[in-house]
Amino acid sequence: MSDENETSERAAEFVTMFRKGIEFTRELLEENQRLRTRVSAIESRQNDAAQSPTEWEKLREELLERIRGLEVDRNDAIERLQEVERENQQFVTRYLEVEEENNNLANLYISSYQLHSTLDVSETLKTILEIVINLIGAERFAVYVADEKTGQLHAVAAEGGKLSEFPAATVGEGSIGACLATDEVAYPVPLDQAGGGEPIVCIPLCVQERKVGAIAIYSLLQQKQGFSPLDHELFSLLAGHAATAIFAAQLHGQSERKLSTIQGFIDLLSQ
C-alpha cells in the first residue's frame, strides 16, 4: 500500500515537473519570437535606410543623438561617482582625525589620572618618569625640584643616567633655570644636537607663581624621530599637572610629618 502511495506521489511530482518544463519552453519560444521580430524590424529599418540617403541620414542622426545622450549620462555618472569618492575621502580623513584626537585625549586623560592618583612624592615622580619614557619617548632626562629658599634646582629623579650626572641649576640661570623663570616650555638646542650637555626640551613645573621644579630632556629613544603635536600637549599637561601633583604630594608629606610631631607632643603632654 505504501509502495503504491509513493509511486503515485512520484508520478505527481513528475507531471508537475513536466508541466513546468512545458511552461518554460513556451516562455523561451515567445522570447525568441519577440527578439526575432525586433531584429527583423531593425534590419528592415537599416535596409530601408541603406536605400534612401535621407532615411540613412535620419537614422544616423538619431543614433548620434542617442550616443550624445549616453555620453552626457556617462559624464554625469562619472562626476557623481567622483563627488561620492571625494565625500568618502573627506569622511575617511575626518575619521582618522577624530581617531587621532581620541587617542591623544586618551593619552592626556591617562597621564593626568595617573599624576593625581597618589599623594606620595616618590610615586608622583615615578609616574612622571613613566609618562616621559613611555608616552613621550625620552631616553635621557631628569626631573628637578626647586628649593624655595635658595632657588636651587636639584635632580630628584632621572632616567638614562645617575642623578649625580645631572648638575644642579638655579632659577633664572642657564636653560633650565631660565625656562622655569619664564614659565614657558623651552627648546634650548635642536633635536639633531641632542646628547650634549644642554637639554633639547625644558618643561617648567609651576603652580601659579610658585616654582616647583622642571623636567629637562636631553635625548630621545632611537626610534623617536621628532616631536608630535601630542608631545607638545603632553609638555603643557606636565607643566601644569605634574607641578600640582608634586606640590600636593610635598604638602601632604609635610602635613603628615607635622601631624606626627603634634601627636607626639600631645602624647607627651597627656602622660
Binding site: N103, I110, I133, L135
Partner: peptide, 11 residues
C-alpha cells in the same frame, strides 16, 4: 608601568 597598562587597556 600602571600608565602603560591603563593606556593599553584603554586602546
Amino acid at each position: 608601568s600602571p600608565t602603560m597598562r591603563q593606556l593599553l587597556r584603554f586602546a
